[in-house]
Design a protein around this nucleic acid. Structure first.
Lengths: 334, 334
DNA sequence: TTGTAAGCGTTATCAT
DNA sequence: ATGATAACGCTTACAA
């Protein structure tokens, strides 16, 4: 790799002159500026980023710690983060906690050694269940900015970008009650132990209470694949009076549709199904599921913007931004 | 952040002594070694990675360039990459090309300045269509190791990790012909311009030819959402004799099932459906689709292993590894 | 307008 | 056993 030193030697001028010339310093004469730049392009000179980082004590890199990336919500957030970061000339280092505390901890520790200028993270399931968060506070105490999105720790004081979990489910439930006149609404949950899951369930409960309806909640307890189907099938078979389903994740809603059809329920006439969804969710269900579409891409973008403001702006004030979701009704229920 | 210098000052010894003590040099006395380490842990000293990188000219970081991460295949590969990288004490910088050439180019250029020790990439759709690949060769010429996975450029000589696209579809098609006695097999494609798409279609064509059957190919031409449904619906409606569908991506197979049911076809009796799939694909379809399951996670792991060997091992030989897929038949067709 | 030199935090060589 | 010094590649005050 070509270095400033090499350029300087070839041109018989000093390193600092070369540096200044390349950075368009006014101190440098037109003539040498051109000579330097020509040789630089000819030799394909690129400043060594590591050296620049050491000098400036800025990495222009953001650490992104996600619980997983196979969940389409996080994939889409990551997409938003990457795009926005690139637009601001930031790189991102991605770490996956796999929902475990030890991996999340390890990643934070490893990257806190000057590898990144700040962090964007959604906390791991394990940390949220066990309520262990000191490792995050430690990073903040070291004056490294941290931003949390989606899954958030209330006790920690930092920038946050969250979804309107409570409000969106509250409104969706109300819609089912008031507009669609549903009276026996089942909530299906596979994420009840997450902060977002709790909020969604609260939104549902509040709407039901306000209309004097009884809650029906099917907690799948972090089940996988066939278990999800069996439990849903059995529940719907046993409780024939259910006339609407709200799924609070992106999978169980489609499963509910499939199971209901198997039982012979007419959708949406006899059963209205609403779930959380992403890019292809509606395409994959038939009849179409109605979805609460979290603006995951937007969440990613906002996270970058806010974190960068925190890193650059001395008067930055910590804040929590709520990104509203968008309800997409299926054609059939519109 | 605590530095060696600070430790040295506090202990009234030289920087180099501190450095050696922390690195367990035999030159240092038991006594000072302990003193240094105690103070280091007390002040939570962590060596500055940037400085180490500058010194050693190794970043222990790998650049990962993906076309997208909302496609579950790439998400799962990324997961495998991240896990394997972490196990080998490597960080990954993730860039998304969004299937565009200019973003892919930009990312390669930006990271080629000493930011990473090597690259893992799947080329963007645009580059594959336009057959533009010089930017990749440029990186290789600079002696930065590059590994390609899945979508691969034959003309470029580098490590490759690929899927058995041709073979898996060939065998799946043969299975439909020989075991299930299907005679009118439709191939649905939304990725015919990608290297992998071409190979899959070839596998299909070869199997048909060997059994003297006529190919039926529905090219969706990179269509989105409702278009996919409409085109599939119309085709199946018009060509009632179709008795099997092979989808060569992870979406159109499920859509085919839904559309066929709409038309009134019995699945799998009248129509057998087979597609490419990932974690939740089968869960989302009803009746269950049979899937060719690409070992995406494995592809990610292998890519890291191979690239690291390339970076560390002087006698490394460039190679192409084929990761076999696994066919998961739906319960109903087993 | 150009050059010298210090410094970012490490590691490594060579004295002491 | 410990320390002084140079070096990685760059930026930047300060001198010339």
């Amino acid at each position: 790799m070509t270095t400033l030193k090499e350029l300087a030697a070839l041109l018989n001028i000093s390193v600092s002159t070369v540096s200044k010339a390349l950075n368009d310093s006014h101190e440098i004469s037109e003539n040498t500026r051109v000579r330097v730049k020509e040789l630089a392009t000819k030799l394909n000179y690129k400043p060594n980023r590591i050296a620049q980082q050491l000098k400036t004590n800025k990495t222009k890199t953001i650490g992104v710690i996600l619980p997983t990336v196979t969940n389409p919500f996080f994939a889409e957030v990551l997409h938003g983060i990457e795009m926005a970061a690139a637009n601001n000339d930031y790189d991102i280092i991605v770490c996956l906690s796999n929902e475990t505390l030890h991996k999340e901890k390890r990643s934070l520790e490893l990257l806190s050694n000057g590898s990144v200028d700040g962090f964007i993270m959604a906390v791991a399931r394990e940390g949220q269940v066990k309520m262990q968060t000191e490792h995050i506070q430690t990073v903040i105490d070291r004056k490294i900015p941290v931003l949390m999105f989606d899954r958030v720790v209330n006790e920690i004081n930092c920038d946050k970008v969250i979804v309107d979990d409570f409000q969106s489910v509250y409104e969706a439930t109300e819609y089912l009650i008031k507009k669609e006149k549903r009276k026996n609404i089942l909530l299906v949950s596979n994420i009840e132990e997450l902060s977002v899951g709790k909020l969604r369930i609260e939104g549902y409960s509040k709407a039901l209470k306000e209309h004097n309806l009884n809650p029906n909640i099917l907690k799948l307890d972090n089940a996988i694949d066939l278990d999800i189907e069996t439990k849903t099938y059995n529940y719907l078979k046993k409780h024939k009076h259910i006339d609407a389903v709200i799924s609070i994740d992106h999978v169980t809603g489609i499963v509910a549709i499939n199971m209901a059809k198997k039982i012979g329920k007419k959708i949406p006439e006899e059963l209205s199904v609403l779930g959380f969804g992403y890019e292809h969710t509606q395409l994959l269900s038939s009849p179409k599921i109605s979805i609460i579409h979290q603006k995951a891409h937007k969440i990613g973008e906002m996270s970058i913007e806010l974190l960068i403001d925190n890193m650059k702006n001395n008067e930055h004030k910590l804040q929590t931004i709520v990104v509203p979701s968008e309800v997409k009704l299926s054609e059939s229920t519109k």
